[in-house]
Design a binder for these strands. Structure first.
Length: 492
RNA sequence: GUCCCCUUCGUCUAGAGGCCUAGGACAUCUCCCUUUCACGGAGAAGACACGAGUUCGAAUCUCGUAGGGGACGCCA
């Protein structure tokens, strides 16, 4: 076990084989929170030993997502240049091949690993036979006790072996003290001799992970539950090399609504999609943090600073959690409404720009508009449809809008409204002026309530429901108001 | 199949033997506010998977059963 006086060093070790999944984001976040809470370091390591699937593009995407989330790392590839920063590099496993190789050689020397020439077909045959006999499908390599000389001879002939770890014949339990799950016992015969180095010379995950965690002085490994059974192999490697184990904590996985591991078929699962759909990084973080962790103060809405202050591994929940989109939406809306208007505008603006909406540029107008609409927004993207009627383009009149316009007094109301707007002297109307006009329509057309408000609202935003007219109308330029009224009357 | 992990309202969770008639949040429903929509406020309904033990006492400890998940790769 690691000694507690050492500074805490944790790491997030994604493999660049696609976007950053929300599950990965949660793992990264817990590591980040722990590091920041303990005043330790957070390392980003890239596990790109799967040459076929790892891409530079994925790396950039994942780094971009981590940046969007605001999870900054102290060591690892620089977010912009991808050049290593920190004194424990390189941080990309593909650049550490010699290191792994030297340790593999050491294990072979120690008699704890060996070259194995079994082919895929032979292994498959063994698996099938074992399964049929009801035994665990483990390899039983005839090369297990070959001498290095024997193997070298064969290698010289051009055969490319893998390096396998020699699992002890002595049957015993490996005991893991997991930070999340407590004591977990693994029988040593749970695994067969496993591969350390592929025939291509590239090492595999379980091996790199141990070497890197040790060499990078990682003190705590917080990772997903799917790695729990890998831990046995890793413990064997630590033992063979005579190294101390770091602390491990295996957190539960995230499930979809059907209780299956959350995946693409459940919908949006990447951080990138959430950012594109108008979610706030702080809301996403708040939500995923609570999927498997709880605040000791029973807070539901927490800032990143709150979470750093309150985080501890002993409140990590071992049970799997279902990702509830509804609650995320609520949480997003809550964070969004708490934002100062200027900041909210900065976040909303890219979405409005993308939708090509031309809106007035002054801050007074913007703040007023946000004040009116923010209670209807759950995501930043929602602003687009809310703000669209405020831009200078014709609105689509909804079915309900047409219905309201079909009432017998509606045309009269809108005509009168149009006349009043046309006669209005300045570009914008004040709330008081609108109230005055409203009173005029009310008395002159002899309508009130629904019959009064809804047709006017349709003539303003194209639908009968929405924000109060007295706050809505002052946001629209007289010309737009006039065009809208004409448009609605014409299509009626 | 083997091994490992998990099991409190529909969902996220609080709960470390008596404070539990099981608390909170999302969602749902009702009411209030309100010209409408949303926001906000008040309330309702809703769970300890099952069975044995241990104990004066169990959601909490133990063991079984069931269900779910994960791993068993020259993926990570």
């Amino acid at each position: 076990m690691s000694d507690n006086t050492r500074p805490v060093r944790v790491r997030f070790a994604p493999s660049p084989t696609g976007y950053l999944h929300v599950g990965g984001a949660r793992t990264a976040f817990y590591n980040y929170l722990y590091a920041r809470h303990m005043g330790g370091q957070f390392v980003l390591r890239i596990e790109d030993t799967d040459e076929a699937r790892s891409t530079e593009e994925s790396l950039r995407m994942q780094i971009g997502d981590l940046e969007w989330l605001g999870l900054t790392w102290d060591e690892g590839p620089d977010a912009k240049t991808l050049k290593d920063m920190g004194s424990h590099g390189p941080y990309r496993q593909s650049q550490r091949k010699e290191i792994y190789e030297s340790y593999a050689l050491k294990l072979i020397e120690l008699g704890k690993a060996y070259y194995c020439f079994l082919t895929d077909a032979e292994i498959e045959e063994q698996r099938a036979a074992s399964l049929k006999a009801g035994r665990p499908p483990q390899v039983d390599s005839p090369y297990r006790n070959w001498t290095v000389a024997q193997a070298s001879e064969r290698i010289a002939k051009g055969d490319k072996p893998v390096v396998r770890f020699k699992v002890t014949d002595e049957k015993r339990d490996y005991v893991l003290k997991d930070l999340v799950r407590g004591e977990v016992r693994f029988p040593s015969d749970m695994v067969g001799d496993f591969v350390l180095i592929r025939s291509t010379g590239m090492p595999v995950y379980n091996f790199c992970c141990v070497i890197d965690d040790h060499l990078m002085h990682i003190t705590h490994v917080l990772r997903a539950e799917e790695h729990l059974s890998n831990t046995l192999r890793q413990m064997m490697i630590y033992e063979a090399l005579g190294w101390d184990l770091p602390e491990f904590g295996h957190m539960s996985i995230i499930l979809g609504p059907d209780k299956q591991k959350l995946s693409k078929r459940h919908g949006a699962t990447s951080c990138f999609e959430y950012s594109q759909n108008g979610y706030l990084p702080e809301a996403l973080l708040n939500f995923i943090a609570l999927l498997g962790w709880s605040s000791p103060k029973a807070q539901e809405i927490l800032s990143v600073a709150d979470m750093i202050a309150q985080f501890s591994t002993d409140r990590l929940n071992p049970a799997a959690a279902v990702f509830d989109e509804q609650k995320l939406l609520w949480m997003n809306a809550t964070h969004l409404r708490a934002l100062p208007h200027r900041e909210l505008w900065e976040r909303v603006e890219p979405f409005l720009t993308k939708a090509n909406l031309k809106l007035p540029g002054d801050w007074a107008w913007r703040e007023q508009a946000l004040e009116v609409f923010k209670t209807s927004m759950q995501t930043l993207k929602d602003a687009v449809e809310l703000f669209r009627p405020l831009s200078r383009e014709p609105v689509d009149v909804t079915a309900e809008g047409k219905e309201a316009m079909a009432w017998e007094t509606s045309s009269k109301v809108v005509s009168k409204w149009k006349d009043l707007v046309a006669a209005h002297q300045s570009d914008f109307m004040t709330e008081a002026q609108f109230n005055e006009y409203q009173e005029k329509i009310k008395t002159e057309c002899e309508v009130k309530g629904k019959q009064l408000f809804q047709p006017i609202r349709v003539a303003v935003i194209g639908k009968p429901q929405g924000a109060e007219l007295k706050v809505l109308v002052p946001l629209l330029h007289k010309e737009i108001l006039l065009e809208r009224a004409s448009q609605v009357l014409a299509t009626n």
